[in-house]
Design a protein around this nucleic acid. Structure first.
Lengths: 336, 336
DNA sequence: CAAAGCTACTGAACCGTTTCACTGAACCGT
DNA sequence: ACGGTTCAGTGAAACGGTTCAGTAGCTTTG
């Protein structure tokens, strides 16, 4: 039974205290349909009784919870952690709560969690899709505003989106490596079970062909031990590429760990480029070359769009973020 | 107006379909007070109608929401981020949701958020207190189980606690530095506005005196830019200490950035020790000496205690975590 | 001056569950 | 055959708000 919720004042008690009907109190507290004077009186009585509206009752009656679901693709990634923290704070500043959930890179889990959030009656959903083509988005889109961050949802089911121009990011990184003389590059992309043909991967192949670079795409977990292991098998193999391009800085951190274990020099033996530019990346030795996105901008865009969707004041619904390359010291001329 | 929630089946429709009363359906779906056969029939009908219980209505009627509040002291800290992610996952595995909030190191904000969580009727609260002596904990403790992580709440208001033996951690770090010959150590502790006499600080002074080391305690923000700035002023000053002991690895990262900017060698010019042992710490150059806590253990302990409190199956309510020192290469003999 | 329109408010239904107090039937031992 | 338990299920009252359809009283309008 846990403990007992201390009994709190209800709207009916405030009604009794002011001699009004509960309905009038409800209106007055929201500042509508009542005279200024009544509102004053009600507010005072409420304060005296320590009355606070019961959010659950309100949610049941009005159909809105004030909560926004935040479904992250895989929270192992430090950058996604930073994004989640930022979005949580920004929503809070607008009087809403975030329910942060973590699909752990698994599309099935993503579907389950998405449905669960809908059943929890969140007012809106921000999602970093693991599988942008999943049917669940169509289903959810019918009942609440969905904003995707990162990739577009296939089929236009999103209410809005903050998409990253991943192609531009890929271009920046690959051209940078190409200019340094690299012709064979391993690309480490986050594990996303059973979701082939991710847009990002498609871009990699297209851009590689255009630029004239040979790529070898491998998936990797985003946590440090997992990424380290993946990188170890890549780098210890017989036919080591001269450069690694990681689709998130978290994966690049694993590469660093692997190079260290193998005694490889960065960028002497292999060049490493990341994606996201997490604050830690500047601090590594050598500092990590990375594709940079403005995280504050992304956070505020996502929040603005979802809040617009919830309040029915749609502003711009589609925002495209452009990356820039931050060349640091982890990339260098191709050896030999 | 957002969009319209598609109408979903209610318990009454299931009742109608099975010829039972809503009450019976409610019981049957929870597997109580009904015959095995009825339960079967109800489950089937529910599945056919696509019925899912409305969590908000359930929360209103039963008084429990299935949500656990997680109030973090300051989410800028990477280790607290990791903890939040872990607790979120562990709760989810037990069919509960976490509402993650961030006090940003501000005790007033902490109080506001704590109250707001109570008003949201979370079933329980896990808190990493900014101010363990705040009165709000007594207030909250009356209406829901509160589990503190890190420091004990003053006055025994917590339902349970997972406390770190900070004193032991401090001892490990300071003795380590003392053995290396350091006699003047700067201690960087997270900014916690207007909360003097933190237990941890008290330990620092007590242990320093016992060991025979001179300490200089300074507060610092936990984010990288903030910590860097603090460290810069410390290290650029006229009377530079020979070692810095940071009360979180995130702060130590700022120290690294500062030493780099100033051209100081670690540990040649200054030794640096951290606290938490975030996974990234092993990856820095030089790898950071840190006081290590078993984060998985902390996560699972906290979740076990809070769930025990909610379900009224109290097991062990107080868990003390012991640290160990991971000496790496950021600490070395005191110069001269 | 009657019809129409506001404004400020009321009463009751409603949101979709859970839970409490009860009931009829079956079963029990004696 | 009888009082006493269990069992399976019922009806109605919560839970604490919001909202819809009225309505009384006042002002405006033609």
């Amino acid at each position: 039974m846990a403990q007992q919720q201390r009994k709190r004042a209800t709207i009916r008690e405030v009604a009794k205290a002011t001699g009004l009907s509960p309905a009038a109190v409800s209106y007055a507290l929201r500042g509508i349909q009542t005279s200024e004077e009544t509102q004053q009186r009600v507010r005072e009585a409420a304060r005296e009784l320590g009355y606070e509206a019961h959010p659950i009752a309100r949610a049941l009656a009005s159909g809105r919870t004030g909560m926004v679901g935040l479904l992250c693709g895989s929270l192992e990634d430090l950058w996604q952690q930073a994004l989640a923290v930022g979005i949580g704070r920004a929503l809070f500043a607008r009087d809403r709560y975030a329910i942060i959930l973590d699909a752990a890179g698994d599309p099935e889990r993503e579907v389950t969690l998405a449905r669960q959030l809908r059943d929890q009656r969140v007012d809106g959903l921000i999602v970093q899709p693991v599988d942008p083509a999943a049917e669940v988005w169509a289903e959810l889109g019918e009942s609440l505003p969905v904003v995707s961050v990162g990739d577009s949802l296939r089929g236009g089911h999103a209410y809005g989106e903050v998409v990253f121009d991943n192609r531009a990011g890929v271009t920046l990184a690959l051209e940078h490596l190409h200019q340094l003389g690299h012709r064979r590059v391993a690309v480490l992309t986050p594990t996303r079970a059973s979701t082939p043909d991710r847009p990002a991967d498609v871009h990699v192949h297209a851009e590689a062909e255009r630029i004239g670079i040979q790529v070898d795409v491998v998936t990797s977990p985003q946590d440090l031990p997992g990424a380290t292991e993946t990188a170890l098998t890549m780098l210890a193999g017989p036919d080591r590429p001269s450069a690694l391009f990681c689709f998130s800085d978290s994966i690049a951190y694993g590469v660093y760990a692997a190079t260290r274990a193998l005694g490889l020099a960065v960028p002497g033996d292999v060049s490493v480029a990341g994606f996201d530019n997490h604050p830690m990346s500047a601090l590594l030795t050598p500092p990590l070359t990375s594709v940079d996105w403005d995280i504050d901008d992304i956070v505020h865009s996502a929040v603005r769009v979802i809040v617009g969707g919830i309040d029915g004041k749609p502003r711009r619904r589609r925002i495209v973020c452009e990356p820039s390359l931050l060349p640091r010291e982890s990339t260098g001329k191709c050896p030999q």
